[in-house]
Structure formats: C-alpha cells, structure tokens
Design a protein around this nucleic acid. Structure first.
Length: 426
RNA sequence: GGAGAGGUGGCCGAGCGGCUGAAGGCGCUCCCCUGCUAAGGGAGUAUAGGCUAAACCCUAUCGAGGGUUCGAAUCCCUCCCUCUCCGCCA
C-alpha cells in the first residue's frame, strides 16, 4: 500500500509514476473523495467532542448528587446527529481504503518504459550457451526418453500442469532444494525457516496477492479462510506482520523451501508444454527484512545470491530489469534471472528478485524502532527466488544432455547425489 | 468432539459503567547521586488520524464486529484466536 499522505498531497506525481506501470489513477475521484472526507471528519469529530464534554459533566454532577436531568436533555439531540455523521464518514473512508488497496507500488526511477517482457532491459549476461554438435532435445522429450518425467500420469490423477517424476530425476529434484538451502545458509547468511503452506487472507493481503489477484490463488473449500500459498514469500514475509522490531534485529534474512500453488488463471494456452508453468512447483525463496536505507543495496546483493546458484551449477543466464508493464503489483523494482534453455533456444525466467520498499510492510504493519527518532517506522522488504526448483531441473537436463540422451550432472551436485554423476537413459 | 480459562501499551500485568489512554512493574531515553562493578533518586516514554507554521488542542483505538447507555477496557450478542483438562487419532 502506498502512503495515504503521498496520495493526498502529491497525487499528480503518483498518477504520473503509475502510468509507467500502465495503471490509470482516477485523480478526480480521489480528490473529490478527499475533500468530502475532510469536511465530514471535522464535523463528526467536533460532534463527538461535544458529546464527550457533556458526558463528563454528567458524571461529575451525578457524583456530587446534583440533578442530572437538565444535562441529559442537553445531549439528547446529539446521538442521532453523531450516528449520521459517523456513518457517512465510515462510508467515505471505506471507499478510500478500497481504492488505495488496489493501487500498485510506484516504480523505481530505473524501471524502463514498456508494456511486456519484450521491453525488459538486459543488464548483464553470465556464461556462454553451449555449442551442441547434435540437435538438443527439450526436457519433455528427454524426460520421456528416460521414463522419469511423466506428464500423462499426472494428468490422469490431477489434470494438466502437474508432473510425476521417478528415480534419479525425482532425486535430482530433491537434491537441488538441499543444495540451494545449503548455499544460502552456509555462504550467504540466511537462516532457514519452515512455514505453513496454508495461509489466511490477511497474510495474502499483506504481501499484495489480495484483494486484486484472488483468481490466481487456490482457496480451500469449507468455512476456513485459508489459501494454498502461491510462494513462500507470503508466509515468510508475514512472520513480521504486526511486529515492532528492534534496530539490532535487522536485517533478518530468511531462506525457505516450500511448494507453491498457482491457479494460472489467465495463462491458458501459455507454456502448456513441459513443466515451465505448473499448478504446483517447488521453490527456494530468500526474504530479507531490512532498514529502509538498506533495501536498495540488499536488493542487488540478494539478486547476486540467486546468481551464485546458477553459477555454481554452470548454467548460463542473463539478468533483466523488468519494464513498467511487466512489473508486479507490489514491487518498485524487479530483476529477473533468465536461464538459457537449449531445448527452447531462449532465456527463460528462473528467479525474480524484487524490492518492495515499505509497500508490503505498510499492509502488514511491520515496523522497527528507529533509534534516531525513537518511533516505530515501516521496514522494507526484499525477496527473490533462489531458485525455482522445477525450472532449475529443466535447465540442468537440457544444458547437460549428451548425444546419447544421458545427462552429465554438474560437479557440485555429485556429493548431494550420493555419487551419482550421470543420469543414463534406460 | 466435550468442559473450562483468557485475549489490555515495546513486554509483563491491574482495572470490571464516569477526569482511565489506562495503576504497578520491566525495558528504553534524559538528569542527579554514588563509586570497587553493581546499585539509589527524579523526569519522560502507545498508535493512528484531524487541525495547525508549530505547540496547544480534538477524535479514535484495551482481539474483531455489532448492541445497551448521556457515557463502555468494564454490561449484552456474534465471530476470531490462545491456553488447560477430558475424549479421539497418530
């Protein structure tokens, strides 16, 4: 959520910046609502003040045994007036808060203009895509060849966008999670955390998935207000919801592996082949809760932490700065890591690292006590995938395939695989 | 599933219709005293919003939402959550 004061005082600037995100702010509506709010609020509060003064007098009079009836007559007419004013104020405030909840975060200065991922700006590349002396297969064909990645069986039990994996492939999938967690905890200073996979709507509101993106979530049936998490970002970030942290507790660095569940409503027909875009996938997520002055540097640092995983795995990638139109609701800036996939002959997103400034913190009421002011102030949140596990598996399978269909695993995984260094075709 | 207890400020904890935004303690900040290591005295210290140049001031907030009342942290209703005991399951 944006600072309501910013919207009140600098609405033109806000509207201007939101245009970069292809969001049209209804300036006239907000301004008229705000004018009405001011008037009604002053009226309501002065009526309440009047009543409070009278009530106190009644209390004192009663205590000293005076006749309170004349005083009661004086306040009689106030009740209905206050109720009416209060109701009107509530309506205005509700309308304002409904509106402000659906306004996205402002983009950072460095966010490029553009409408789609085609307009994202490449910042750097690492590694050179391998030259194949044969026609490389994609992970679907390779998986079928090995009989270890099975979409048909998954489709029978659950439908499209699910997968069943067997044997070495299932093990590789599990081992990648282990590998990522170890690197982030041992080398990057994150502390591992285990969290619920079902969260309430308040948590989803906190990180920005609700109220705007309800249709992207899986909500459980029944009376409980619970949703399957679309990313570990939701439960992990909400760890500090409604908290006031001390300065010496920051930064907090969490790394967490969870499954993620997404309805993928609105992506019909997109990435239907293979396991690029599934309803259920595993992800290792890094979340940092930081002092406001640190978030920009931490965002760069955290992106670097995700890059380290790709580098250790020897997977070529590039870093792109998302353009306004491709930027998410809550983020002020997002750097995507795109891994090279020979089977698709292109770079595909494998990690998304974002700075949210105080946008999520305001929704969660996550604060820290600033020693300089002594006051609770909003923290900043930064997060990124480190990495999406399924897509990492795809990248390994496709990049490390041999002409005979075998897959020579990156050195760094051998010990995790219990010595298994090659996944051979059956 | 059954029975009971409870949700109050950064934390702990009193209050159970009327100067209570809330005693007391801890923590924190500032000042004083003392000076063999840890203690004593004093003052201050909630959040959000409105108005304002600013201070003052005003409003709201004691889990959430309704109700009763001139007046609710306190009474009534609904919901959420936590804890304890019993049962059930692992």
């Amino acid at each position: 959520m944006l600072d309501p004061k910013l919207i009140r005082n600098e609405i033109e600037m806000v509207a201007e910046k939101l245009r970069i995100k292809n969001f049209t702010l209804d300036v006239d509506l907000i301004q008229s609502l705000e004018a009405k709010r001011k008037q009604v609020q002053i009226e309501t509060e002065s009526l309440q003040a009047e009543r409070n003064t009278h009530s106190k007098k009644i209390g004192i009079a009663k205590a000293s045994g005076e006749d309170i009836q004349p005083l009661l007559d004086e306040v009689q007419h106030l009740g209905a007036k206050i109720e009416a004013a209060r109701k009107q104020l509530d309506e205005i405030q509700l309308e304002f808060s409904d509106l402000i909840r659906t306004i996205p975060n402002l983009p950072d200065e460095s966010v490029p203009n553009g409408n789609s991922d085609a307009d994202n700006v490449e910042i750097r590349r690492w590694g050179d895509p391998r030259e194949f002396d044969f026609e490389p297969l994609d992970h679907v064909d390779l998986g079928a060849m090995h009989g270890q990645i099975d979409f048909e069986t998954a489709a029978r039990m659950s439908g499209s966008r699910f997968v069943v994996m067997h044997g070495s492939m299932a093990r590789l999938h599990r081992v990648l999670i282990q590998f990522m967690l170890e690197v982030h905890t041992r080398e990057h200073g994150y502390s591992e955390v285990y969290v619920p996979y079902l969260v309430n709507s308040e948590s989803l509101f906190g990180t920005g998935q609700l109220p705007k993106f309800e249709e992207d979530q899986f909500k459980i049936a029944g009376e409980k207000d619970l949703y399957l998490i679309p990313t570990a970002e939701v439960p992990v970030t909400n760890i500090v919801r409604d908290q006031i942290l001390e300065a010496d507790q920051l930064p907090i660095r969490f790394v967490c592996h969870t499954p993620c569940f997404r309805s993928e409503a609105g992506s019909y027909g997109k990435d239907t082949r293979g396991m690029i875009r599934h309803h259920q996938f595993e992800k290792v997520e890094m979340v940092q809760l930081v002092k406001p002055q640190d978030s920009e540097a931490v965002h760069q640092e955290l992106t670097g932490h995700a890059e380290v995983i790709l580098q250790k795995l020897g997977l070529p990638y590039r870093v792109v700065n998302l353009c306004g139109g491709d930027l998410g609701f809550s983020a002020t800036k997002t750097l995507d890591l795109e891994v090279w996939l020979p089977g698709q002959n292109t770079y595909r997103e494998i990690s998304s690292c974002s700075n949210f400034l105080d946008f999520q913190a305001r929704r969660m009421r996550a604060r820290w006590r600033n020693p300089e002011t002594g006051k609770p102030e909003l923290i900043h949140t930064v997060n990124g995938s480190g990495l999406a596990v399924g897509r990492t598996l795809i990248a390994i399978v496709e990049n490390y395939q041999m002409a005979d269909g075998s897959i020579h695993l990156p050195q760094v995984l051998h010990s995790y695989m219990n010595g298994e260094s090659v996944i051979n075709k059956k």
